[in-house]
Design a protein around this nucleic acid. Structure first.
Length: 569
RNA sequence: GGGCCCGUAGUUCAGCUGGUUAGAACACGCCGCUCAUAACGGUGUAGUCGCAGGUUCGAAUCCUGCCGGGCCUACCA
């Protein structure tokens, strides 16, 4: 058995994430982690909140809290909603942890020893009334090209022009609206990424199995030439800048840039986990200490690819230490919301907590993964969601399990019946399932979620198909043993359908398997031949009554939700 | 501006390195079943594969141009 280190891109601390964030990284990572655990691999699934940066400071300000308390509160909210969504992190850490502070400082100092750090002084917009430096996009003004009045300092949303904050006409702070801005010189640490370009390129060249999206983004950056990149900021909230373990002179009021410390949190969160559980984290992250037999899989949205394929590897390689780098990388596109993006800041779309108020996690998990944005952005619409849930979960899986159980109650006293032997119908079912199982395992292995979902569904559908052909309700009068064999096979098939659905539908799978008295925890991924799998339940074993697994989503609900959340006018 | 991706049945999508009548799911029609949440099964209708050229014995598949949509472009994370 192998060892899998799985990370999901870190959700930013501000606010509970929307379904787009969930579908783009945390959820596919969870499905994969569950699959690998079921296969019996040793899995460490890591996520964390990304807590530093300007938005966190501003969020705290708005909430009337100090930044630490604000992050404490937001972290707890996110951890709770992730847990309720069934995201099975082995550890959900915080980039503001002591461990991350220490590792971030460690990396920076190592990079400096390697000659990859340089102090540079650059002009930066300073807001006198906000008493802070402003990131480019926190400066607003009139676009010099098209005259749009709310252009941001980095780009005009109206005409698309790439801007510098000083280009803006009548610039003002996006935070306070104040126009009292000035340009001040400020000194920052720059990471000389350009010196690592060849190393990174060779590494990307070798990463043949990355998805095209990831490779093309990485190559684009490399082809344009890696630039030295500022890795510190003029902020209060973040990892303090040190030199030889002491506050770095001239940097007392500065911290590391959030994008420098955030990926390091993957490692630090592992250290948090280790400290909390008494485990050892180096065997996951340092090549000589066990990392060389770890398969490291990263999940992220497409916006994050450059940081994972270029920036973070520069940090790791540049340290000169034998850190583990990503082996397999899954980059997803966006789930879109009625022609636009989900937006946390504008509260556009459905958020994880709201989703759970409407329906249990498995409904969302299924639809988001069956329609995962793998090759392109995929649209979330209420009617799609309704249709997908009703057709797949209610009609196919829920109905199949229900009719099998109910028939067993009516005719076999809710016991796995003995008697009868498989005939031609069963043999052809075995053959079909062997092929489905092979394909399904391959799709999970390749992290192709839509295909895996479609194959999972095909297994459920095979159940309804089989039942219809076997028609034990007709056979039972004339040939009781044949009916017994049919029901036994169908009961086992319901179990199998539940088992293979577990990565997508962890709650439902457990509910079904508990009712059938299946005891293995954690669940095993089926590897045996279908002929064996469909006769696993001990004959005579009782089957507990099962309530309906899924309820139909009604048109009236869709109308109501559309009105409440927008979209589908 | 530069780069990348996408445009295939009403809808969401498969179609790898070009090769018999272009596939699936959903929706829709018809038939069947009654164990089941009017769910299930069978079957059928449905596509000039964005447009225009080109290469080829042969292109949805390769090349060029155009149209339409999306994404990335380094100080939001």
């Amino acid at each position: 058995m192998g060892r899998y280190l799985i990370t999901s891109a870190l959700p930013y601390i501000n606010g509970i994430k929307h379904l787009g964030n969930l579908a783009g990284s945390m959820l596919p990572a969870d499905v994969h982690a569950r699959f690998r655990r079921m296969q019996g691999h040793e899995v460490l699934f890591i996520c964390a909140t990304d807590e530093h940066g300007t938005p966190a400071e501003l969020g705290a300000l708005e909430a009337g809290l100090d930044v630490r308390s604000y992050c404490d509160q937001q972290h707890d909210l996110q951890r709770d909603v992730c847990a309720r969504f069934g995201l099975s992190f082995d550890w959900f850490g915080r980039s503001s942890s002591r461990q991350n502070r220490e590792l971030t400082q460690h990396f920076a100092e190592r990079l400096e020893e390697a000659g990859l750090i340089e102090e540079r002084t650059t002009p930066q917009v300073y807001s006198i009334d906000d008493r802070r430096f402003l990131p480019d996009r926190y400066v607003e003004g009139t676009c010099p090209r098209c005259g749009y009045e709310s252009a941001r300092g980095d780009q005009c949303d109206n005409c698309g022009a790439l801007l510098d904050p000083v280009d803006l006409i009548r610039p003002r702070s996006k935070i306070s609206g104040s126009g009292r801005l000035e340009v001040r010189d400020t000194t920052h640490l720059f990471l000389l990424q350009d010196r690592m370009a060849e190393r990174i390129r060779a590494w990307v060249d070798a990463a043949q199995e990355w998805p095209p999206l990831a490779r093309s983004i990485a190559y684009k950056w490399l082809d344009e030439g890696l630039q030295p990149r500022a890795i510190t900021r003029d902020l209060d909230w973040g990892v303090p800048v040190t030199k030889n373990g002491r506050p770095r002179p001239g940097f007392e009021d500065k911290v590391f840039y959030v994008w420098f410390d955030a990926p390091i949190e993957y490692i630090a969160a592992t250290a948090e986990w280790a400290d909390a559980t008494g485990a050892e984290w180096r065997r996951w992250w340092l090549m000589p200490e066990g990392g060389d037999d770890v398969t490291y899989v990263q999940f992220m949205g497409k916006d994050n690819v450059a940081f994972h394929t270029v920036s973070f590897p520069v940090t790791l390689f540049g340290s000169g230490e034998p850190w583990k780098l990503v082996d397999r990388l899954k980059a997803l596109n966006w789930v879109t919301w009625y022609g636009g993006k989900f937006s946390t800041s504008e509260r556009r779309g459905v958020f994880m907590d709201q989703a759970l108020d409407l329906l249990p996690a498995d409904y969302w998990r299924w639809r988001l993964m069956a329609n995962a944005p793998e090759n392109a952005d995929s649209a979330f619409t209420w009617s799609d969601f309704q249709n997908g849930v009703n057709a797949d979960l209610v009609n196919v899986l829920g109905n199949f399990v229900n009719r099998v159980v109910r028939f067993g109650e009516a005719r076999f006293e809710s016991v796995v019946p003995d008697g009868g032997t498989p005939g031609p119908l069963e043999l052809s079912l075995f053959e079909e399932l062997d092929s489905h199982l092979r394909a399904l395992t391959e799709h999970h292995d390749a992290m192709e979620f839509r295909r895996a979902a479609a194959e999972t569904r095909a297994i459920w559908a095979a159940g309804n198909q089989y039942l219809q052909r076997a028609a034990p309700w007709s056979a039972i009068g004339a040939d009781a043993p044949a009916a017994a064999c049919s029901l036994r096979t169908a009961l086992n098939l319901a179990c199998l359908g539940a088992r293979v659905s577990a990565p997508f539908l962890p709650y439902t799978a457990r509910t079904i398997l508990d009712a059938f008295g299946v005891a293995d925890r954690p669940l095993r991924w089926p590897t045996a031949a279908a002929a064996v799998l469909l006769d696993e339940l001990p004959r005579g074993q009782p089957v507990a009554p099962l309530p309906l697994l899924f309820r139909r989503i009604e048109d009236t609900e869709i109308a109501d939700w559309s009105a409440r959340f927008g979209g589908e006018e």
